[in-house]
């Protein structure tokens, strides 16, 4: 699989990647393909193996098994050469306490082979970062900005970002999105690990969802939306009976004449016909989101691992499971 894809079309090809830390299995046959020029969302709950995958890609961790190709090379053997062609923003950004933000940006971009002065100044301004502060004086969000700017000023083919907005405020998240879309327009490949679905939906061409070290879904947003459910709430003329026997309808809750349920998007029409027959007084329809898909896999995960906390029982997904 990996052998046939050249460096030109495919920036990253991972197949069957395995990695354990002692008895803990972090990656259990993970697959990931990132095409050159696309913004790829890498989704998964905490502890699902996103960072481990990225760290294998960077040659920081050694794989136990499987195939990994990065920009046409072997990330473990050719680490230093490959790293000149990519920039990485770690999930936990820790800066040297005695170096200023400006110094860190210059240092990291120089170690990568130089930076663009104009772009540096523009990014400092857009992210509203004071480059003269010492590392220990920055907040988490500002440390993340330093790492982001250091990555964005470099002229590289591939950006690997590990939950880059986890410390940013909503305004800065917006700036970040603009920057990433700009990079994508210039043809750069972006691998964006995240657990923020809105972010991935806004930025990514394709998405891979992983769970417990394995890829569970992968595809374009349109393909994945097809797998998701629309949630419907309605106030009806009569109390409905047997809605849950309709194909593709799940999680039906009936309180008198009010009903809420989820429906697989392909079966939305069937449900609407039935509701209309009963007489609709009021209805809200929530469009399918990645969150839905994510939560379905996530909920499976939690079920498998033990009883859920009572507070979760109130959530919509949980109601019928």
């Amino acid at each position: 699989m990996a052998a046939s894809s050249g460096a030109n079309e495919t920036a990253i090809v991972i197949s069957g990647l395995r990695k354990s830390f002692g008895a803990t299995v972090a990656l259990d046959g993970l697959d990931l393909t990132v095409n050159t020029g696309e913004v790829h969302g890498f989704l998964g709950p905490n502890g699902s193996g996103k960072s481990t995958t990225l760290r294998v890609l960077l040659g920081l961790l050694r794989k136990d098994g499987g195939e990994v190709r990065l920009l046409g090379g072997d990330p473990w053997r050719d680490a230093a050469q490959l790293h000149r062609r990519l920039a990485y923003v770690p999930g936990d950004v820790n800066l040297w306490p005695t170096l200023t933000g400006g110094e860190v940006i210059d240092l990291l971009s120089r170690l990568r082979g130089g930076s663009d002065e104009k772009k540096r100044a523009a990014l400092l301004e857009r992210f509203e970062l004071d480059p003269r502060k010492k590392g220990r004086a920055y907040s988490k969000g500002n440390r993340q900005k330093v790492a982001l700017i250091a990555a964005l000023v470099s002229d590289v083919e591939l950006l690997i970002l590990d939950e880059p907005t986890s410390g940013l405020d909503p305004l800065m998240e917006g700036v970040f999105r603009e920057c990433i879309l700009g990079e994508a327009q210039q043809g750069r490949t972006v691998l964006l690990s995240s657990h923020l679905l809105s972010e991935v939906e806004a930025l990514c061409d394709r998405v891979s969802i992983i769970r417990r070290g394995r890829t569970v879904e992968s595809g374009t947003l349109a393909e994945l939306r097809h797998l998701t459910r629309t949630s419907v709430r309605a106030e009806l003329g009569a109390s409905p009976v047997g809605l849950d026997r309709l194909p593709g309808v799940h999680d039906v809750l009936v309180e008198g004449s009010r009903v809420s349920c989820d429906v697989d998007t392909p079966h939305l029409g069937d449900l609407l016909r039935e509701l209309t027959r009963l007489g609709v007084r009021d209805m809200t329809c929530q469009p399918p989101t990645l969150e839905e898909l994510f939560r379905r896999h996530y909920a499976d995960d939690r079920d498998a691992e033990g009883p859920r906390p009572a507070a979760d029982g109130a959530s919509r997904v949980a109601a019928s499971r």
Partner: peptide, 21 residues
């Protein structure tokens, strides 16, 4: 702490420059 340099000195561009610093 006082504010420091906004830009790194030319020395701070290699691994040794960092280790020395």
């Amino acid at each position: 702490p006082r504010p420091g340099r906004a830009q790194a000195s030319p020395l701070l561009g290699t691994p040794f420059g960092l280790a020395w610093r």
